[in-house]
């Protein structure tokens, strides 16, 4: 936000803006920037998802819209969803029904406040950064339960309840896996975590010690479940629940759920990049290769690799059963992550 405030200073006549307004203008601008960035990233990710899924299934995917490999397909789809009729079923709880998609999106959107895209490209360096991400990220559960409950539809309700059970279960191992990084850094701030990994690939926490490497895998699996991706997509299991918690939604509200899903994917990939893959820092150390690429490019490249693995897993694995899901969370990931925290702590002490 400081850099955005500095950029705003360059606008001629900015000083004429009243003092009270000037305090809020950088906030407004940075939220608009984050929203635009998220919308762009989501447009790209939806296209990528369709392409990756198509090629894994020996198809081509969208090929016509926009010319080159159907790059404008999601643009056209978003436009179509915008123009669709806004259907609110008669028996719904109107207020909750209308509010739910925005709350689901808010969870992903607000967490990007602390994500450092580059050395100085972040909205705010909160000293509780990663805790804030975990806390705000779980806001989307409330939105999902709201959507499931307010829809007054048995499939929606099933989806909402399953999502709640799943996301809350998997937040525990993911938060504990995050702790393995916090122990060596000694700070919750995302910027401090990235700064601790400067200097090339051997300084990334992923390759720092074996416990954190395993913690990355635990975090990755748990984050898949947190964003309801296959193989953990039982909240929106098409073959069982029509569409889960967003069964009754259509048009723009459905688009918001879609936007939230992909924004959440990008969020967990960003968090994993920041914590384990060195965020915006260079891949190769300075004595091997010149540090040419700017930080944000590297950040997006690393996040994109993780998102590709998410998509790759989605199209390779079948959906888990509910009991298998709970087994994986409580009996596999949680004990392993606890052991990993102990291991990292032991390494930090001795």
């Amino acid at each position: 936000m400081d850099s955005i405030a500095q950029l705003l200073q360059l606008i001629p006549g900015y000083d004429a803006v009243p003092e009270g307004l000037r305090a809020y203008l950088p906030m407004l601008v940075s939220s608009v920037v984050i929203f635009a960035l998220l919308a762009l990233v989501v447009l790209f990710l939806v296209w990528l998802e369709r392409k990756v899924s198509a090629h894994i299934q020996d198809r081509l995917g969208p090929m016509y819209v926009g010319g080159w490999h159907g790059w404008a397909q999601t643009l056209a789809d978003a436009l179509k969803l915008l123009l669709k009729e806004d259907i609110v079923p008669a028996a719904t709880d109107k207020v909750l029904y209308k509010m739910a998609p925005y709350i689901v999106f808010l969870g992903a959107f607000a967490a990007f406040v602390v994500v450092p895209f580059g050395a100085s490209s972040f909205v705010s360096d909160l000293n509780i950064g990663i805790l804030y991400v975990v806390a705000v990220g779980s806001l989307s559960v409330i939105g999902i339960i709201m959507a499931g409950w307010a829809s007054n539809n048995k499939y929606s309700l099933y989806g909402g309840m399953r999502a709640a059970a799943q996301i809350i279960s998997y937040e525990i191992p993911s938060a504990i896996a995050i702790m393995t990084v916090i122990i060596p850094v000694g700070s919750l701030s995302m910027v401090d975590i990235v700064n601790a990994q400067k200097g090339g690939i051997q300084h990334w926490f992923l390759f720092r010690n074996p416990f954190i490497f395993l913690a990355f895998i635990v975090y990755f699996i748990a984050s898949l479940a947190e964003v309801n991706r296959t193989p953990f997509d039982i909240p929106e299991a098409e073959s069982e629940l029509v569409a889960g918690y967003h069964t009754e939604y259509s048009g723009m509200r459905f688009a918001f759920f879609f936007l939230a899903e992909y924004a959440n994917m990008f969020l967990v990939a960003s968090v994993a990049t920041t914590l384990f893959l060195g965020g915006w820092t260079q891949v190769l150390p300075a004595f091997i290769a010149p540090q040419l690429l700017p930080g944000p490019v590297l950040f997006f490249a690393k996040a994109l690799v993780l998102i590709f693995i998410q998509m790759w897993l989605r199209w390779s694995l079948p959906r888990l059963r509910v009991d298998q899901l709970m087994y994986l969370s409580w009996k596999v990931l949680l004990p392993i992550s606890l052991v990993l925290v102990l291991g990292v702590g032991w390494l930090a002490v001795y």
């Binding site: 090629h55 894994i56 020996d58 198809r59 790759w312």
Partner: peptide, 10 residues
């Protein structure tokens, strides 16, 4: 899945 990612599309 990786192998199929690079097989020519039908």
């Amino acid at each position: 899945a990786w192998r199929h990612l690079f097989t020519p599309s039908v």
